Simulated assay, not measured.
Amino acid sequence: MDAQRLKDNFAQVAQHGDAVALFFYSDLFLRNPRLRDMFPVGMSTQRDRLLSALGRIVSQVDDLHNLVPFVQQLGRDHRKFGVEALHYPEVGASLVTTLRYFSGSSWTEELARDWTDAYNLVSKVMLDAAQQDSSVNPSWWNAQIVAHERRRFDLAVFRVLPDRPFAYQPGQSASLEVPARMRMWRSYSMANAPRPDNTVDFHVQLIDGGPVSPVLVRSLRVGDWIKLSAPVGTMTFDERSGRDVLLIGGSTGLAPLKAILDQIGALPSPPRVHLFFGARYVDGLYDLDDLQKRAAGAPWLTVIPAVSDHDPGAVAEHGTLPDVIGRFGMWQNHDAYVCGSPGMTDATVDRLLNLGLSHDRIRIDKYADA
C-alpha cells in the first residue's frame, strides 16, 4: 500500500466536494436499499462527516500511532447506528466505486489495490474495537428526563436517568437521540461528575437551523425518554499534574467544566482554580448563580464572568474571553481546559499560547457538533 499515492488520489477526488459523498451514498443505497433506514432523512450532515473522516484517515495513513485510536473510536461509535460486520463489505464496494468514478483516467489497478487494502485494514480495526466494546457496553442507553428547566428562551438545563449504569469521565460528552429526530445523533457534554444516583445533567442551547437542539430545549418534558451513546472525549482532568487549573467556557461550553469542577471539589486538597465564564450578553450567563454559590464555599475557586457586549449594569468583565483572560494573568504554570464555539476556542488557545502557556497543557472541546 503506497501511502503517498493514496493521499494524492484523495486530494484529487476531494476537489469535487459534496458531490463525492452524494455519489457514494447514492451508490450505497441503490446497491443496498435496506441500508437507507439506518440513516437520517436529511443527509447533509452525514455527507460532511463522511468526507471529514475520510480526509483524516488518509492524512494519517502513514501515522498509525494517531490513526488507530481514531479508527477504533469510529468502530465503537458506529454501534449506535446498528452497524454490523456484514455492512462493511457493502460500504467498501461503494467507496471504491466512488473513488474510481471521480479519479477518471488517473485510476489504476495499483490504486484499486491500495484503496482496497487500506479499507480492509480500517474496517478490521473498527470491527475489532466494536466487538470489544460490545462486551462491556450496550449500543446505547435509554434515559428518562427527570428534570427540565428553561434558563432562557433558547437554552435549557435538564437531567436524565439512564436505564443502567453510565460510566464516564468528567469532561467527556455523549451523543443524544430524541424520538422526534430519529438517527440524528448530536453530541453534548455531561455537566456533572458521575453521581451515586446515576443521573446526568446536560446544558443545551438552541442552534438556528439545527434539527435536534430545538427539541431538547423546547419540547422535552419530564417523563420523556431519549437515547445516550457511549461517552467519548479527551478533555479530562489530569489529577497527577499538581498544577493550578484554568477553566474557560463560552455559553454552554460551561457544561464539561462544571463536571471537572465536581471532580476537583472532591479531592482532598484541590488545586487553585480560576473559572472564566463568558457570553455575549449578561443573560447568557445562565448558570452564574450556581457558580458563585460554589465559589463562596470553596476558597480554592475563583469565578470570573465576562460579557463581550458592553452592559453598564452587568456585574461582569467586559470583553471577549481571550481578552479577559489576558488581563487577569499569564497562566504559564496552569493546566487549561477550554470549551466553546470553534471560533472562541481557537482564539482562546492562541491567546494562551501568546501568554506563555505551552500547548501540551491546553485541552479543548469544540461544541460545533452540538
Rank of each mutant, 00 (worst) to 15 (best):
M182P: 09
R183K: 11
R183H: 06
M184T: 06
M184V: 10
W185Q: 03
W185S: 05
W185C: 01
W185M: 00
R186S: 04
R186G: 00
R186E: 04
R186F: 01
R186V: 03
R186C: 03
S187Y: 11
S187P: 04
S187C: 13
S187G: 07
Y188Q: 00
Y188K: 00
Y188H: 05
Y188D: 03
S189Q: 06
M190K: 05
M190V: 05
M190Y: 00
A191V: 02
A191M: 01
A191T: 00
A191L: 01
N192I: 07
N192T: 10
N192E: 07
N192F: 05
A193T: 07
A193C: 01
A193H: 00
A193W: 02
P194R: 02
P194C: 06
P194I: 07
P194W: 05
P194Q: 02
R195C: 03
R195Q: 13
R195N: 05
P196V: 09
D197Y: 04
D197K: 03
D197W: 00
D197C: 06
D197E: 09
D197S: 07
N198R: 13
N198I: 08
N198V: 03
N198S: 13
N198W: 08
N198M: 14
T199M: 01
T199W: 05
V200T: 01
V200Q: 03
D201T: 07
F202T: 02
F202Q: 07
F202W: 07
F202M: 04
H203L: 07
H203Q: 07
V204H: 02
V204M: 05
V204Y: 03
V204C: 06
Q205R: 15
Q205I: 15
L206F: 07
L206T: 13
L206M: 12
L206C: 10
L206I: 13
I207S: 10
I207T: 15
D208W: 12
D208I: 12
G210I: 11
G210Q: 08
G210M: 08
G210C: 06
P211M: 12
P211T: 09
P211R: 09
V212N: 05
V212D: 03
P214M: 08
P214H: 13
V215W: 08
V215I: 15
V215R: 05
L216P: 02
L216K: 01
L216H: 05
V217M: 11
V217Y: 09
V217R: 06
V217E: 09
R218Q: 15
S219A: 14
S219F: 14
S219M: 14
S219R: 14
S219C: 15
L220M: 13
R221V: 14
R221T: 14
R221S: 15
V222L: 10
G223P: 09
G223C: 11
G223V: 10
